[in-house]
Lab assay of single mutants.
Amino acid sequence: KRPMNAFMVWAKDERRKILQAFPDMHNSNISKILGSRWKSMSNQEKQPYYEEQARLSKIHLEKYPNYK
């Protein structure tokens, strides 16, 4: 399994927050909201998630050096 990208790292927690506020919301609607919110974020706001992506990718590479 591939490591999560920056959007997926961010969306994991955000999806949970949306589901708590709107438990009956369909997954497709949540995904649209998440995509819209991510697009509206500045690069500075996204930076911690890109850093986490890099950390996860490094761990993945160490654990699975032959993964293609």
Rank of each mutant, 00 (worst) to 15 (best):
K1D: 13
R2F: 11
R2E: 08
P3H: 11
P3L: 07
M4Y: 06
N5A: 02
N5I: 02
N5E: 12
A6L: 00
A6C: 00
F7M: 04
F7W: 02
F7T: 02
F7I: 01
V9C: 10
V9E: 05
W10Y: 08
A11P: 00
A11E: 09
K12Q: 13
D13M: 00
D13Y: 01
D13R: 05
R15S: 06
R15I: 14
R16P: 12
R16C: 10
K17P: 00
K17N: 07
I18D: 00
I18T: 02
L19M: 11
Q20Y: 03
Q20W: 01
A21P: 03
A21N: 13
A21T: 06
A21R: 12
F22C: 12
F22W: 11
F22S: 13
F22L: 06
F22Q: 13
F22M: 08
P23K: 04
P23G: 02
P23Y: 03
D24M: 04
M25T: 07
M25F: 03
H26P: 15
H26Y: 04
N27F: 13
N27T: 08
N27D: 15
S28C: 08
S28W: 10
S28Q: 14
N29A: 13
I30G: 00
I30E: 00
I30Y: 00
I30C: 02
S31T: 12
K32W: 05
K32A: 10
K32H: 08
K32C: 07
K32F: 05
K32Q: 10
I33P: 00
I33F: 03
L34D: 02
G35S: 14
S36F: 09
W38F: 04
W38S: 01
W38T: 00
K39A: 10
K39Y: 06
K39F: 03
S40G: 09
S40A: 11
S40R: 10
S40M: 06
S40C: 10
M41R: 03
M41W: 02
M41V: 02
M41P: 03
M41L: 11
S42G: 06
S42C: 04
S42I: 07
N43M: 10
N43R: 13
Q44H: 09
E45C: 02
E45K: 02
E45S: 03
E45M: 07
K46W: 00
Q47E: 10
Q47L: 11
Q47W: 05
Q47A: 10
Q47T: 05
Q47Y: 04
Q47I: 07
P48K: 06
Y49W: 08
Y50I: 09
Y50Q: 07
Y50D: 03
Y50M: 07
Y50R: 06
E51N: 07
E51A: 12
E51R: 05
E52I: 05
Q53A: 15
Q53I: 13
A54M: 08
A54N: 08
A54W: 06
R55Y: 05
R55G: 04
R55N: 09
L56E: 13
L56F: 05
L56M: 12
S57T: 13
S57D: 14
K58W: 03
H60A: 12
H60D: 11
L61P: 12
L61Q: 14
L61M: 14
E62G: 08
E62H: 06
K63G: 11
K63A: 12
Y64H: 14
Y64W: 10
Y64C: 13
Y64E: 14
Y64D: 15
Y64R: 13
Y67P: 14
Y67L: 11
Y67K: 11
K68W: 11
K68D: 09
K68S: 08
K68F: 05
